[in-house]
Design a protein around this nucleic acid. Sequence first.
DNA 1: TTTTAAGTACCACGATGGTGGTACGACTGC
DNA 2: GCAGTCGTACCACCATCGTGGTACTTAAAA
Lengths: 207, 207
Amino acid sequence: MSDQIRVFSVDDHPLLREGIAALVNNQPDMVLVAEASNGAEAIQLFKQHLPDVTLMDLRLPDMSGIDIVIALRSEFPEARIIMLTTFEGDVEIHRALQAGARGYLLKNMPPSELLDVIRQVHAGKKRIPPEIASQLAEHMSDQNLTEREVEVLRQVADGNRNRDIAKKLFISEETVKVHIKHIMEKLGASDRTQAVSIGIRRGIIQL
Amino acid sequence: MSDQIRVFSVDDHPLLREGIAALVNNQPDMVLVAEASNGAEAIQLFKQHLPDVTLMDLRLPDMSGIDIVIALRSEFPEARIIMLTTFEGDVEIHRALQAGARGYLLKNMPPSELLDVIRQVHAGKKRIPPEIASQLAEHMSDQNLTEREVEVLRQVADGNRNRDIAKKLFISEETVKVHIKHIMEKLGASDRTQAVSIGIRRGIIQL
DNA sequence: TTTTAAGTACCACGATGGTGGTACGACTGC
DNA sequence: GCAGTCGTACCACCATCGTGGTACTTAAAA
């Protein structure tokens, strides 16, 4: 039948895809039309199948799920994409939603919830859990780290001294200090070490 | 038929359990006999079903998978348990193997690999990927952090100064310095910040 | 019993980090 | 054109950290 919701799943965990496949195909009103395990595959298969709803892992091996969202929505602005993530409080989710994702789900949510969200997003609604929405607002007023600051924070996490960071980024040690000062202010950290903890916890820098 | 491998799956992600269920039940020589989403359930259902092979998530909401392994194997020394984890290089895996887990798998491995390992572990073999085995040997010769050191590292990650840590742990600031010095030596970190990065990456301290 | 590891403690010194300023050019948005 | 943000840079000062010793106690292991 043609009124089934055509679902597309993008995740690098085969077992999880298997779970989604089993779940979705068990619904009378849904059918899984394709699966991808990386960004390139995702974009190619999306164009080929033009699914109604796409389930997208936030973190993929080759590129960020966000970049895929941006790529897809620049060509298909009506694409309905739901982000899946393992980690609560992941900052990346905000960028994904800004990039045009329509929904957001933690991977440890019950399957019924996933099905709900698929149906709602397909129906044209946005489905973002309230605690995320408020977090979103918070983070808006909250200051996000700039690209340069993220770059510095990564260096800090690797145990580099200000002097070394300065050399690597071709700036003065004093400027590095300024960046770190701003990073700590924005993250509410009392020192560089806590800034790194928070940065990792929020997904600003990767493991 | 009675010669099927009776599999038990413990994981707090319903979608992943769904995937495992679909996969296992599709094999002629396997059957999924039970599923649990937390430690208490895991122990209760294990006793009830006495499965041939147990698939256990390393990290569960209520208790560590390791503690469940210990609990189960103290009562059922012949229990065959395979640990599943998301993160490569998780130190916890070593403790799990010492606690008696028979196998180890990353969650992003292909399903065929999982089935292989289930069959091999059921046949009485241990199945630990070579890179883990070598890591295991490494980490043995490598020094593990003591409980006290982990405690200090956690405080460091929270942005506490040595003075504050000293107060919280009722020791002198000088002793805190000694602990941190040892932590950095053991982890190969050049400063406290990198020690925290490495600690988080290896799962010594949690997010 | 001797040895080893863990935890405690102290000292002194140099290295590194964090704070609080000010400042300027480039770019963006109103 | 003007305000705001970002990235850059400098300075001075104090706080904190990291290094390299030595040393005592307790408990476990050999």
